[in-house]
Design a protein around this nucleic acid. Structure first.
Lengths: 314, 314
DNA sequence: TTGTAGGCGTTATCAC
DNA sequence: GTGATAACGCCTACAA
């Protein structure tokens, strides 16, 4: 299978000219006889010549390539983020190599290692620790990341809203430590003197969670729960649907608030209230950070504020 | 900004060794004094040395890179396709450069041109004509593509199902020509002697369509419609929600069938019946095709069969 | 208009 | 263990 690729010289030999002339023909340089050019291109096509991007990149500094490592492409959170990165990269004439860890820390590490050799800078929505290479790296979406979300603020927006609506017994469906947001939730609940403790926070099984099951576990412990804040919309959607299956009216019997502001929330009945993140902008900001890194400027941390989008579910 | 990048030789000079020794240190080759290695790596880090992927790729034939051009990352159809491509590429140790045309033919053409120089093979969900370059190209998802969906079969499955359910006055919400599926729809409707003609097919405004508006236009023309087949699930979702807004009961007053089998269909109430495509597999098959192309084997056309997934909406 | 020389940054090969 | 030297495929000069 690995028959050495066709090079300029091969074409040159076959066409009876120097490799330089071939180069001229391929790159549409002016100084060449139209007839020669035609003939050379013809031969090139016959030989299925394809220029080596490596050789080209070597001589004329090639396109900048940014790696984008996400957790899961089919999780509706990521397409918007990816779209933001693609758009910002496109503006700059950059390429984007996308990879997915599939929520697996080992695959994540492997992907980072592999990308490290193939890209100029990496944007990573990482689960595990940041790698120690010299690779310019923009970490997004988690505590202490270069681009982070104001999770505390978001939790407060959600709780303020629910409390305004008269709720006191509010449960939370969280991700397992250390990814969850139980601390800000419990802390602010205490500040607002809600009658709830750590028992009101239910961790889902994994980072690819089933909100329905989690909600049922919450109700098993606290049947009197009147409102639920979920770690994200995917969990909230599962939870709210489970509630409907159990015959509960939403929001009368139980209100639901998600996190992320995914468009899928609007498909539910009633549509899901959510603490929205501008995911697209997050991707764009990540590319800006990457640009800074590449220029040698130190990265500055950016915190994205959330926006509460009140819909019918609360 | 373009300060020439640090090379092996720079490191070599700074460390007082030959560039070859630096190469050995960087690549963890055996034959080198541990102390030398340590020192060299130290210097390399200080100088922020990063190996050139181009030079590396040139000397040792580099990683295979496949370009993936989709229409819109945030359209829920594509993430699954992308996931399939990523998975199959990962298996082979390939990289994937993702680009989006944002449903714009000019941007699509530009993206193809740009990718042509940067990838070994391109997988494209194209709207416009296939480019004439020598670039190995796998076209997917449209009539006559290398990987295509059996649209006729899918339409028949949908109509058979609706007719079984007793429907006769069935409308279709289609994409504008030449992307739509009106022909197979009308043809099979005639074959099954349904009392409908071309007036029962409503084209949406664009390829990024509003199913709700289209449904309302359909009802304006044919208020007695009892079932709707949509070109895809995105349209169907919009249409069904519009129906609910109009106070229609689904499926009693009007049934809905989508196309694609997106997971978002399950969030609707009632969940959307759909002619499902295995999008993930489509991506995997595209990579297999790409592999064949790279090996010089001629591409063989593959037709993906659809599966009718009956849910509550019909 | 065309051909020849040199170098891009890296790795492989072979001396030392 | 280490260092010259020669590729890899291409492009930019400059010479013919």
């Amino acid at each position: 299978m690995e028959k050495r690729q066709v090079t300029l010289k091969d074409v040159a030999r076959a066409a009876g000219v120097s490799h330089q002339t071939v180069s001229r023909a391929i790159n549409d340089k002016g100084e060449i006889d139209p007839e020669t050019r035609r003939r050379v291109l013809e031969v090139a096509r016959e030989l299925r010549y394809r220029p080596s991007r490596f050789a080209r990149g070597l001589v004329s500094s090639g396109t900048i390539t940014v790696g984008l490592l996400v957790r899961e492409v089919v999780n509706p959170f990521f397409p918007e983020l990816i779209a933001g990165v693609l758009a910002a990269a496109d503006e700059r004439g950059w390429q984007v190599v996308v990879a997915s860890s599939e929520n697996d820390e080992r695959r994540e590490a492997a992907a980072v290692r592999s990308l490290a050799n193939q890209v100029d800078v990496l944007i990573g929505y990482l689960m595990g620790p940041a790698p120690e290479d010299g690779l310019p790296l923009v970490v997004i979406g988690r505590e202490g990341a270069d681009i982070d979300v104001d999770a505390e603020g978001g939790v407060r927006q959600a709780l303020d809203h629910l409390i305004d609506r008269g709720h006191r017994r509010i449960g939370m469906l969280d991700l397992p430590s250390p990814w969850g947001r139980r601390e800000p939730f419990l802390e602010y609940a205490r500040e607002r003197t809600l009658p709830i403790d750590a028992g009101w926070v239910i961790d889902t099984e994994s980072v690819d969670p089933d909100g329905g099951t989690a909600f049922e576990r919450l109700r098993a412990v606290h049947p009197d729960v009147t409102a639920v804040l979920a770690y994200n919309d995917v969990i909230a959607v599962g939870a709210q649907r489970a509630a409907r299956r159990l015959g509960l009216r939403v929001p009368e019997d139980c209100a639901f608030v998600g996190f992320d502001g995914l468009t899928i929330g609007d498909l539910l009945e009633p549509p899901l209230t959510s603490v929205a993140i501008d995911k697209r902008r997050m991707g764009e900001l990540a590319v800006e950070q990457a640009e800074r890194l590449l220029a040698g400027t130190p990265a500055d941390r950016i915190i994205l504020e959330t926006t509460l989008e009140v819909k019918g579910s609360s």
